[in-house]
């Protein structure tokens, strides 16, 4: 799978309250959540983001609450994938479970600026910076996670097991 898109850049410890504030959690409708995505980190973000964009963040992206509304809101807002130095663990598993591709790569985070166009090969973990003509690599995705992705997320994987 190849993901290609324009980059929005964020810093350290972007928590799930910033990704989708609790005041909007009286619904789990993806389209409603998308209207407020990243609002407390950047109030303009919901109006700036377009389908196919990617997020680059520093360390511990998605820390805090376990709310799956966070990756759901990102996905519904059209974010194709997230590259960060590291992810908080519940956010990390939520992304694999619901099928939002995420990658860990310190060199990519260092090299990529906001507005750059990048191309990520989800299978090989190679990240190309098309704007700067640079190439970085992401940590390999563990085999079990690959299995989850191949199945189409945890629910499809569970279905197969039950079936």
């Amino acid at each position: 799978m190849i993901l290609k898109g324009k980059v929005w850049k964020f810093g350290n410890n972007i928590d799930t309250d910033a990704i989708i504030p609790a005041r909007y959690l009286t619904t789990s409708d993806p389209a409603e959540l998308a209207k407020h995505v990243m609002e407390d980190a950047d109030a303009e973000f919901p109006s700036k983001v377009s389908k196919g964009d990617m997020i680059i963040a520093e360390s511990n992206f998605g820390c805090g609450s376990s709310r799956e509304h966070a990756p759901i809101a990102l996905k519904a807002a059209g974010i194709q994938g997230v590259v960060a130095n590291s992810f908080a663990r519940i956010f990390y598993r939520n992304c694999f479970n619901i099928g939002l591709p995420i990658f860990e790569s310190e060199e990519a985070v260092k090299g990529i600026q906001e507005g750059d166009n990048i191309e990520v090969d989800a299978d090989s973990g190679v990240i190309k910076n098309l704007t700067k003509d640079e190439e970085y690599t992401a940590k390999p995705i563990p085999p079990f996670m690959q299995e989850l992705i191949a199945a189409g997320g945890l629910i499809e994987w569970t279905k197969k097991r039950l079936g």
Binding site: E68, I98, G153, L154, T158
Partner: peptide
């Protein structure tokens, strides 16, 4: 499906927060 599920470690249990989809799958399996 709440990050502070880790509270019960105080009792000598392994407890951890997960996502809603994890809970869905666990409710089934």
């Amino acid at each position: 499906a709440d990050s502070h599920t880790c509270t019960y470690g105080a009792l000598g249990a392994f407890s951890t927060g997960v996502g809603s989809t994890d809970v869905a799958s666990a409710m089934a399996t």
